[in-house]
């Protein structure tokens, strides 16, 4: 069953501050992602990989085409959904793990992860237990659990971020370099998480530069190239 169906999605940015340059980031992209599948996006920087993930998540608007994400009551077209529909879709269906953690002042790692689950409707105690299990699996030392992650190392922040992305078992997951600053042991822990979610039927789109990780978790690689062959810039 198709969880994400993208048809001729196109995105350009009109940069008013740079003399009105228009920059095409993605042109006429079509792609299906099935349940239980992990599609790895591959290509040079500027090929539109992160742009595509952000368009599916709704952080970037889509100029034309459609981005259908299968939701409980049927598919939602993110390309034309209202903010409210996208908010609901994110709560129950669509997860996004970015490369960087957006830390919140004063909130400890465990609470940050627990809160993500509570907002999605998971009961307090269960949310907390899930957060702790994930922190353990991702080898975040217990002495850090109640510390606000703003002062953590890059790798520690990234693991908190991953825990946050996996604490709710959403059927569609977008991963932007989830293992970029992790050592081998932690990479393996993330690979296990991804594989578990796949086996449970989640559909994933991932950007992964690490070839070994990609080969372990992805069942399909999609090559992306910048529109118009080059940097995609046209004035």
């Amino acid at each position: 069953m198709t969880a994400v169906r993208i048809r001729e999605a196109t995105k350009s940015f009109h940069l008013h501050l740079q003399g009105g340059v228009t920059f095409t980031a993605l042109s006429q992209l079509s792609l299906d992602v099935e349940r239980g599948s992990c599609v790895a996006l591959h290509g040079p920087s500027g090929a539109g990989k992160s742009t595509l993930l952000k368009m599916i998540y709704g952080s970037y608007r889509c100029d034309s085409g459609s981005i259908l994400v299968e939701d409980v009551g049927g598919a939602i077209d993110v390309a034309c959904a209202t903010p409210r529909e996208i908010m609901a879709l994110r709560r129950r269906t669509l997860g996004y793990v970015s490369q960087f953690l957006r830390a919140i002042p004063r909130i400890g790692a465990r609470d940050l992860i627990t809160e993500e689950a509570r907002v999605a409707g998971v009961e307090d105690e269960i949310a907390r237990r899930r957060a702790e299990t994930l922190l353990e699996r991702l080898n975040v030392p217990a002495r850090l659990w109640d510390v606000a992650p703003a002062t953590f190392s890059g790798g520690e922040q990234q693991r908190v971020n991953i825990a946050r992305g996996f604490v709710v078992e959403r059927p569609v997951l977008l991963l932007d370099e989830p293992t970029a600053s992790l050592d081998a042991a932690n990479r393996a822990a993330v690979e296990d998480l991804v594989m578990e979610r796949r086996r449970a039927g989640a559909a994933m789109l991932a950007i992964m530069h690490d070839v070994e990780t990609r080969d372990r978790v992805a069942d399909r690689i999609v090559e992306m190239r910048a529109p118009n062959g080059g940097g995609g810039l046209h004035v």
């Binding site: 940015f13 008013h16 952000k54 709704g58 952080s59 608007r61 903010p83 996208i86 908010m87």
Partner: peptide, 12 residues
């Protein structure tokens, strides 16, 4: 629009 959308993909 969505807060992250306006901040990450501002149009005006």
């Amino acid at each position: 629009g969505l807060t992250d959308q306006v901040l990450e993909d501002p149009r005006e």
